[in-house]
């Protein structure tokens, strides 16, 4: 290798980064030692000694380990992220396409709705939804739109295997979607669907006008043009942005702590509190979000690669 100025410069930069990392690492170690703290993940095997209100159906009891508690939190996060991502994309597409409608009134309504949802802080939306759902009738006066389906301030109770019934304070049996889950999902979907609708609209408008003209000249109907000419080309521009939107939805789901949904952050906070291992729980949190974000991004990238291949 020749020692050109460029190589020397890059080597120097690498050296500086390595030195900074070494310095941070050493300081961490000395400071931890001075504070009498030691890093270790053994505590994950200890009994958690706290309960989780919403476990996505995973059996969990206070005598189970912290590791299992964190797993329950992780599944809760994943459940919100997966449902949120799918619903945001569906509604985002609908809103994005409706905004391109030739009907002025419809366009205006959709535009105002999107602007309102997009420019309202997510936390505000979340607190508003949570407060609204908490204002539902008490379990004793639950609404019953269909036999076996109950809507109350304890959430949405649906029959699954057996019918939910009110025992004492809460519904037992069936499956219950907590109001916190619903509020979190609703707020995330509203916020991100609005965002995605802009991505969809931009991508569709980005497809050259001549493509549409050519398709219509070839005798395709407007619907066919849209389905076979515009959308496939728009998708290519969209997918990387949709991936980003899904990643940010996943990260935003950590706002759950504000309304009391036991997502992975909430469970890790409790763990840190109970054990004092705050550095380790921070590291777990970083690892979790990095994995989730990279995972979502990888999935979307594979889909994108397939699209590109398919397009030749």
């Amino acid at each position: 290798m020749r020692w050109t100025p460029r190589v020397v410069g890059q080597a120097l930069a690498l050296g500086v980064v390595a030195a900074a990392l070494w310095w941070l690492g050493r300081n961490t170690q000395t400071n931890l030692e001075q504070r009498g703290l030691s890093l270790g993940f053994d505590f994950l095997r200890n009994p958690a000694n706290f309960d989780i209100g919403d476990t996505s159906g995973i059996p969990f009891r206070p005598e189970n380990s912290f590791a299992r508690a964190i797993l329950v939190g992780l599944v809760n996060t994943a459940r919100v992220a997966a449902a949120g991502c799918a619903l945001s994309i569906v509604f985002g597409f609908m809103l994005g396409i409706l905004r391109l409608s030739s009907n002025v009134a419809l366009r205006g309504v959709v535009r105002s709705a999107v602007e309102l949802m997009r420019n309202t802080p997510l936390l505000l939306l979340l607190l508003l939804l949570a407060a609204t759902l908490h204002g539902m009738p008490s379990p004793q006066n639950a609404l019953q739109p269909l036999p076996g389906v109950f809507i109350s301030d304890r959430g949405l109770a649906l029959p699954l295997f057996d019918r939910p019934r009110l025992v004492g304070f809460n519904f037992v049996g069936g499956v219950v979607l907590s109001p916190e889950f619903a509020a979190l999902l609703g707020a995330l979907v509203m916020h991100h669907a609005a965002h995605i609708s802009e991505i969809v609209r931009g991508a569709i408008l980005g497809v050259s006008r001549t493509q549409t003209d050519a398709a219509i000249a070839l005798g395709l109907s407007r619907a066919q043009t849209f389905r076979f000419v515009v959308i496939p080309q728009a998708l290519r521009a969209m997918v990387p942005l949709l991936a980003t939107a899904c990643v940010s939805l996943t990260k935003n789901s950590s706002l759950a702590v504000a309304i009391g949904f036991p997502d992975v952050v909430s469970v890790l906070n409790t763990t840190a509190n109970q054990t004092g291992h705050s550095v380790e729980t921070m590291l777990i949190m970083i690892a979790v979000y990095l994995t989730l974000s990279l995972g979502v991004a990888a999935l979307m990238n594979r889909y994108n690669a397939r699209l590109l291949r398919a397009g030749g």
Binding site: F50, D51, I52, G53, N170, E180, V257, A258, I259, G260, P262, S266, N269, T270
Partner: peptide, 9 residues
Amino acid sequence: SFKPVVMED
């Protein structure tokens, strides 16, 4: 048994 709802605030 209890169903805890854990609030940050």
